[in-house]
Simulated scan of single mutants.
Amino acid sequence: MIMMQLFSTFESNQNLEMVLATVEKKGIKKENIFAVPLDNRSDERKVFDTLHRSDGVSFIDIGAALSTAFAVIGASIGFELAWGPIYWGLIGAGVGFLLGFAIRLFIELGLKKTKRISRGKYSEIILIIDCEASQAELIENILWEHFALGVAKIK
């Protein structure tokens, strides 16, 4: 008799309870079912990237666009002002970049704060089921039917 282990992850809800009841009805003993609750991340994600970790969010994209626009406007107006177009173009570029950076920082810290903490679905429980190889396909189908987030089989 070849034994297999099936690993699956679930959110903690009624689907997990239904899986446990259904699997027990199919002949799997309680001793062969093991459920492990996971501790999910409780601290907030970092806003700024480090050398070893990056989330793919750029803080300079809006700043670069506004820097270009304000530099052109500053240089155009600078022909009429005392310091001239070069200085006013550089001042406009600096102001535009700082304004764009502040806008992006406000969006990430203020508006997307809740999305950074609770993005996507969390695996809350790992379910491990020991069964015979002949039952593995049936148990795997039961797990998928009850909305497992992921399933793996090991001989």
Results as ranks from 00 to 15, higher is better:
residue 149 L to A: 02
residue 128 I to F: 00
residue 126 I to G: 05
residue 140 E to A: 04
residue 6 L to K: 05
residue 45 R to A: 08
residue 45 R to E: 09
residue 147 F to D: 08
residue 44 E to P: 06
residue 95 V to E: 01
residue 94 G to F: 14
residue 137 E to M: 05
residue 15 N to P: 05
residue 106 F to A: 10
residue 53 R to I: 11
residue 12 S to M: 12
residue 35 A to M: 03
residue 23 V to F: 04
residue 46 K to M: 05
residue 21 A to F: 02
residue 8 S to C: 09
residue 64 A to E: 00
residue 48 F to Q: 02
residue 30 K to T: 09
residue 138 L to G: 00
residue 132 E to V: 04
residue 53 R to A: 15
residue 74 G to S: 03
residue 34 F to C: 12
residue 138 L to T: 13
residue 124 E to A: 10
residue 124 E to Y: 14
residue 59 F to E: 09
residue 16 L to S: 09
residue 140 E to M: 07
residue 142 I to N: 00
residue 65 A to I: 15
residue 113 K to W: 10
residue 62 I to Q: 01
residue 128 I to K: 09
residue 148 A to N: 06
residue 106 F to R: 11
residue 68 T to F: 15
residue 10 F to V: 07
residue 47 V to H: 04
residue 44 E to Y: 03
residue 10 F to N: 02
residue 35 A to C: 13
residue 79 F to P: 00
residue 23 V to S: 00
residue 154 I to H: 14
residue 3 M to Q: 15
residue 51 L to P: 00
residue 19 V to A: 05
residue 58 S to N: 12
residue 67 S to D: 08
residue 84 G to P: 03
residue 83 W to A: 15
residue 24 E to Y: 01
residue 118 S to Y: 04
residue 146 H to F: 07
residue 118 S to M: 02
residue 150 G to D: 14
residue 143 L to E: 02
residue 6 L to I: 15
residue 73 I to G: 01
residue 113 K to I: 10
residue 80 E to I: 12
residue 79 F to Q: 08
residue 134 S to W: 06
residue 153 K to Q: 14
residue 2 I to C: 00
residue 124 E to H: 09
residue 55 D to F: 06
residue 127 L to V: 12
residue 65 A to W: 11
residue 62 I to L: 04
residue 42 S to G: 09
residue 89 G to M: 01
residue 71 A to L: 08
residue 67 S to F: 05
residue 136 A to M: 11
residue 153 K to R: 15
residue 97 F to Q: 04
residue 61 D to H: 02
residue 13 N to V: 10
residue 77 I to P: 01
residue 43 D to Q: 13
residue 58 S to D: 08
residue 88 W to M: 14
residue 147 F to S: 09
residue 52 H to R: 15
residue 88 W to R: 02
residue 15 N to T: 03
residue 97 F to A: 06
residue 57 V to D: 11
residue 86 I to S: 14
residue 117 I to K: 13
residue 145 E to N: 13
residue 58 S to M: 03
residue 149 L to P: 03
residue 142 I to Q: 03
residue 70 F to Q: 06
residue 92 G to A: 03
residue 99 L to E: 02
residue 81 L to H: 01
residue 71 A to I: 04
residue 109 L to Q: 10
residue 147 F to N: 04
residue 16 L to P: 07
residue 48 F to Y: 13
residue 15 N to K: 02
residue 78 G to S: 05
residue 80 E to Q: 12
residue 90 L to G: 12
residue 82 A to M: 12
residue 28 I to F: 11
residue 40 N to Q: 11
residue 61 D to G: 06
residue 44 E to V: 10
residue 36 V to L: 13
residue 54 S to Q: 14
residue 143 L to R: 03
residue 98 L to M: 14
residue 88 W to Q: 10
residue 115 K to Y: 11
residue 136 A to R: 09
residue 29 K to F: 09
residue 53 R to Y: 11
residue 136 A to L: 00
residue 138 L to W: 09
residue 14 Q to C: 03
residue 83 W to D: 15
residue 100 G to I: 04
residue 96 G to R: 06
residue 144 W to C: 11
residue 34 F to M: 10
residue 45 R to P: 01
residue 51 L to D: 06
residue 151 V to G: 01
residue 12 S to W: 08
residue 53 R to D: 10
residue 35 A to S: 15
residue 152 A to V: 14
residue 45 R to W: 12
residue 19 V to I: 07
residue 72 V to F: 07
residue 95 V to W: 00
residue 122 Y to I: 07
residue 2 I to M: 07
residue 85 P to W: 08
residue 42 S to E: 15
